[in-house]
């Protein structure tokens, strides 16, 4: 779910935007910096909601821009533990199910968090749930699935070294900066079509 977080930051207003009202140039600069980004231990920033306080701009010798401290609120996507979300299955493997939302891909349901008596069928690449002997319910790729958030994982991502950026070296950090672990074990979870 989305929340509003209050942040403060020092923003450089480039000189070519001095002719437009400062609220606009500030919002643009903040959006450039934060929109579609992850702040460690906070969540996934969508966009700026509003500006609360704009301090006077400061100048630095040798720089034409003005530096403005601003207090603002932004929309952050941060699901809480226990929240129920609906997404799409993007991949099934023996380890578990990968789920994606339209804007966020790093959701994983490990096999220990899937229904009991649920088995993976490698041939069909699908997880199959057998609530009783006869019925077989398939969790296929691209199916709409409902799940519960169990854990959120933030990883501090270091900037790429120049050699990694050129592709000479294997990137050292492969883990996504923000990932979710989810479960699919209780009534109402699993494919949406099962329960309607």
């Amino acid at each position: 779910m989305f929340i509003l977080s209050e942040l403060s930051d020092l923003v450089r207003i480039p000189p070519h935007t001095f002719n437009i009202p400062i609220q606009h140039s500030l919002t643009d600069e903040l959006n450039k910096k934060f929109a579609n980004k992850i702040i460690a231990n906070l969540g996934f920033v969508v966009t700026i909601w509003d500006l609360l306080d704009i301090k006077d701009g400061l100048l630095k010798p040798g720089d034409g821009g003005s530096y403005v401290e601003v207090r603002f609120r932004c929309i952050v996507w941060k699901p809480f533990v226990g929240e129920v979300i609906t997404g799409w299955v993007s991949d099934c493997s023996a380890e578990g199910i990968k789920v994606r939302l339209e804007f966020f891909d790093e959701i994983f349901i490990p096999k220990s968090y899937i229904f009991e008596n649920c088995i993976f069928k490698p041939v069909e690449k699908a997880w199959v749930w057998k609530p009783d002997e006869e019925t077989e319910l398939y969790i296929d790729i691209n199916e709409k699935i409902r799940f519960r958030v169990e854990e959120e994982i933030f990883v501090n991502v270091k900037p790429k070294s120049s050699e990694e950026a050129m592709g000479l070296e294997e990137p050292s950090n492969k883990a996504p900066p923000y990932a979710l672990l989810a479960s699919c074990q209780t009534d109402g979870m699993g494919c949406v079509s099962w329960w309607d």
Partner: peptide, 17 residues
């Protein structure tokens, strides 16, 4: 950048949209 208040309030999907 400083985080002043992690959760000022909740928003529903509708409001965000």
């Amino acid at each position: 950048m400083k985080i002043l208040n992690e959760r000022d309030s909740f928003l529903s999907n509708y409001e965000v949209a």
